[in-house]
Design a protein around this nucleic acid. Structure first.
Length: 322
DNA sequence: AATTCGCCCTGTCGGC
DNA sequence: TGCCGACAGGGCGAAT
């Protein structure tokens, strides 16, 4: 599933379309389009220049000279940029794990739901077999007011941790911490892969209740979020089935993952078999030894030393109102 | 109010 | 070989 590192990699790969104009556009599946209708959208986009390619969370934002086109890749969305003389590569369609990288972009097939024909003869193609993706058209440039964008939390790579924790950490929440990481209104762009990776990297069990997290742990966790996202970007994203870069090739991060997709296999750190469970309705892999579960009760008492949770810190700072 | 659940969708895979 | 159910999961709206 394309998460922040995959969308960022796609954004960077689409740099060459900056300054190009949309000569024509075609759309399939109407239900993937929000803010306009297929036929109308073709007319609205024609002639517009692509001034910038931005990213917010898992959303890719095309800034046009008059309007905004936002793409969300859902589960299996792919955006490829086919040069004018692109060779369509049938191998693109094969499951990718362990295979060679494709040589060209995907063929236009029944899963290709949008094509932007640019003025240099190249094409931007949107393909999405499971159709969880969305194409959002926004008239004018005020895209950040869109409800789906407005509710997003901060960009994890930009936030300053201590200030962020004070302001945005739900210290009373009874949710498991993994659910919080997946909540796009907390931080924007973390999905199932990088949530599991960040929890492993910080040694935190995915079912740990948010309210019982200690300050040191939340700090470690957010640092880990940053680290695993940056690593994902460095290796140009995680391909385990559908994700591709705009040139059609696969990302290199899959083989570098510590836990995601490795249930039952030995922990790369301690050798203990990794365990797969369900948390927040999502498959979740963790190491029972590196990520032990502490309950809210036992932890602060057991050792002689007290560890402050954000909640208890809050109480020190300002007395409770109830 | 906070949290969980059900649903959307289709390719792939294991079992028989 | 072919059929079939289980599974994958981001995000939204409904239910609890």
């Amino acid at each position: 599933m394309p998460e922040l590192p995959e969308v960022e990699t796609i954004r960077r790969g689409l740099e060459p379309v900056r300054g190009r104009s949309i000569a024509s556009a075609t759309f399939g599946l109407p239900r993937l389009i929000l803010g306009s209708k297929a036929g109308e959208l073709t007319r609205q986009l024609r002639g517009q220049r692509i001034d910038d390619v931005l990213r917010r969370g898992k959303y890719l934002v095309l800034k046009l000279d008059r309007d905004i086109l936002i793409v969300h890749l859902g589960m299996t969305g792919q955006l490829t940029h086919a040069p004018a003389k692109a060779v369509e590569d049938p191998r693109f369609l094969r499951t990718v794990t362990g295979m060679q990288k494709p040589l060209g972009v995907h063929p236009v097939d029944k899963h290709t739901h949008a094509i932007l024909h640019l003025d240099d003869g190249s094409r931007v193609q949107f393909r999405d077999p499971r159709t969880f993706g969305k194409i959002i058209f926004i008239v004018g440039h005020e895209w950040e007011k869109n409800p789906r964008i407005r509710i997003l939390g901060e960009e994890p790579l930009e936030l300053k941790i201590p200030a962020f924790l004070k302001k945005h950490f739900p210290s009373n929440s009874r949710r498991p911490v993994k659910a919080l990481l997946l909540d796009q209104s907390f931080v924007a762009g973390v999905g199932n892969i990088y949530a599991d990776e960040a929890l492993f990297a910080s040694g935190i069990h995915p079912k740990t209740l948010v309210a019982s997290l200690q300050v040191a742990e939340t700090t470690r966790l957010l640092n880990a979020v940053k680290t695993v996202l940056k690593k994902g970007i460095r290796y140009q994203g995680t391909t385990f089935s559908d994700y591709r870069k705009p040139d059609g090739s696969s990302g290199d991060n899959y083989e570098r993952l510590m836990v995601y997709g490795r249930g039952g296999r030995p922990c790369r750190s301690c050798g203990t078999p990794l365990v797969k469970i369900v948390v927040a309705q999502r498959g979740t892999v963790f190491c029972p030894r590196c990520q032990p579960l502490h309950t809210g009760k036992g932890r602060a008492k057991g050792s002689g030393k007290k560890h402050a949770t954000l909640k208890t810190m809050d109480k020190v700072r300002r007395p409770s109102h109830n």
